[in-house]
Amino acid sequence: MRGPVAVGVGALLVLVGLLWFLQGIGVVGGSAMTGSTTWAIIGPLVALLGAALVVRGRSGGSRS
């Protein structure tokens, strides 16, 4: 994945990860994920993966 695509996908993953974290800790309600420790753990991991994609996409990506 290169450049703008990696940045876009990464940004989306950061937002989704943040939402999952907030649902997991009970800040955002309205789903089966609310108050679930599983999502409080998975959310930040997904957000970190997204942040890594953003950094990689902005720095030029892979060197093949």
Rank of each mutant, 00 (worst) to 15 (best):
S31M: 05
L45S: 15
T38R: 13
S59V: 08
G24I: 02
G24Y: 01
V54N: 06
G24M: 02
I41G: 14
R58V: 10
A51L: 14
S36L: 11
I41V: 15
G57M: 06
L18Q: 01
F21P: 00
G57E: 04
G29N: 08
G26Y: 09
L18G: 02
L53A: 12
G24H: 02
L19R: 09
V27A: 08
G30Y: 05
W39I: 03
A40G: 15
S59N: 12
T38E: 10
V27R: 05
L22M: 07
G24F: 01
S36G: 09
R56E: 05
A52W: 13
I41R: 11
M33I: 04
R58Q: 11
V28I: 11
M33D: 07
R56C: 03
G17Y: 01
M33G: 01
L22S: 05
F21V: 00
V27H: 02
T37D: 11
W39V: 03
A51M: 11
V54R: 11
L49W: 11
T34M: 06
S59F: 06
G43M: 10
S31I: 03
G43P: 08
V54P: 02
G57I: 07
G17L: 00
A47V: 13
G57A: 10
I25Y: 04
F21D: 00
T34G: 05
S59T: 12
T34W: 05
P44D: 06
P44F: 12
G35W: 10
A32Q: 10
G50E: 05
L19C: 01
A40H: 07
S36E: 14
W39E: 03
L49P: 13
V27S: 04
T34C: 04
A40Y: 07
L45P: 14
V55T: 11
G26R: 08
L48M: 15
S31A: 09
S59Q: 12
M33T: 05
L45N: 15
G17M: 01
L18R: 02
I25P: 00
S59A: 13
V54S: 07
A51S: 13
V27T: 07
L18S: 03
R58K: 12
T34K: 07
G24K: 00
A47G: 13
A32E: 08
S59C: 07
I41H: 12
L49I: 15
V27C: 01
A51D: 06
G57N: 08
M33S: 08
A32C: 03
T37L: 10
L49H: 13
V27W: 02
T37G: 13
I42G: 14
L22V: 00
L19H: 08
G50F: 09
W39G: 09
L49G: 15
T37S: 14
V55Y: 12
W39Q: 05
V28K: 02
S31V: 05
G57T: 10
G17P: 00
L18D: 00
L53H: 08
R56W: 12
L22C: 03
L53E: 03
V28L: 10
S59L: 11
L18P: 00
T38H: 12
G30L: 09
